[in-house]
């Protein structure tokens, strides 16, 4: 029998994302994990700049609005000064992998004990769907009107794979998706693992989430979910790239 999910206490006000958008699911899962781990009054949501900035209005918990791309740097300071607090960087692909790639890589490389959640919708949602570092080969966006030409713009970045393979100290790295109940359940486990890793001082944790952006993809919510499953997942596989070490 399906379990009824209780709305986490910290999600009071309504947050308005587009119908079919993945951000709402991710915010909800993060809040559920925080609550289930008993961290409701021990968390800072550090939010980057993208459609998810709207979440800051609806979250009843300590939160901070970072500059575009810089949440990993501000999170680093939050953690150093509040070592027992759960620090979450909520960012998008444009935020974390384009403008913030320097801060993202450096934070992972220093193995800061924080959790970065990057919601990858293969474009800059908030500014109207421009090409980002994760736009797929051939994907049409408002700045790749003929489809992304990887010969001149490079191949989409795989940040979780980069961290998992190049930064051996990282504690936990995974990629999930919001497109089916099974995927949502798995994603929740990934997020919880990442938080537990942080709370145990195991080091840097990263969860990337493949997320539909029906508005900028010019699709219905259902079509956009199909695109994630049938197209995006072939380039961006789901799974745990770095598991927590059993201690």
């Amino acid at each position: 029998m399906a379990k009824k999910r209780k709305l986490p206490e910290m999600l009071g006000k309504q947050i308005s994302f587009c119908p079919g958008c993945g951000h709402g699911v991710v915010v909800r899962l993060i809040a559920e994990c925080i609550e289930e781990l008993g961290q409701t009054n021990n968390v800072i949501w550090n939010i980057g700049v993208g459609c998810y900035s709207l979440a800051s209005i609806g979250i009843n918990a300590d939160k901070f609005d970072s500059l575009h791309g810089k949440a990993s740097a501000t999170s680093t300071a939050f953690k150093k000064l509040n070592p027992d607090t759960l620090i979450i960087s909520y960012q998008g692909d444009g935020d974390a992998y384009n403008i913030g790639i320097g801060e993202s890589i450096s934070t992972a490389y220093r193995n800061e004990n924080i959790t970065v959640i990057t919601v990858n919708n293969t474009n800059y949602g908030m500014t109207g769907g421009q090409m980002s570092a994760t736009t797929l080969p051939g994907q049409m966006t408002t700045t790749s009107p003929k489809g992304r030409d990887c010969a001149t713009t490079g191949m989409p970045i795989k940040f979780p794979e980069l961290v998992a393979t190049q930064f051996p100290n990282a504690a936990y790295v995974a990629r999930g998706s919001v497109t089916s109940p099974a995927n949502v359940n798995k994603l929740k486990k990934y997020i919880k693992n990442a938080f537990e890793a942080q709370l145990n001082n195991e080091g840097y944790s990263l969860v990337e989430v493949l997320s539909p952006c029906p508005t900028n993809w010019g699709m219905t919510p259902l079509q956009s979910h199909d695109r994630v499953d049938n197209e995006i997942m072939t380039y961006y596989p789901l799974g745990e790239f770095k598991k927590r070490e059993v201690k």
């Binding site: 810089k70 740097a73 300071a77 000064l81 320097g102």
Partner: peptide, 11 residues
């Protein structure tokens, strides 16, 4: 320098 000042923001 950009990262430093953003760390100062968090601090």
């Amino acid at each position: 320098e950009g990262a430093s000042i953003n760390m100062v923001i968090g601090a």
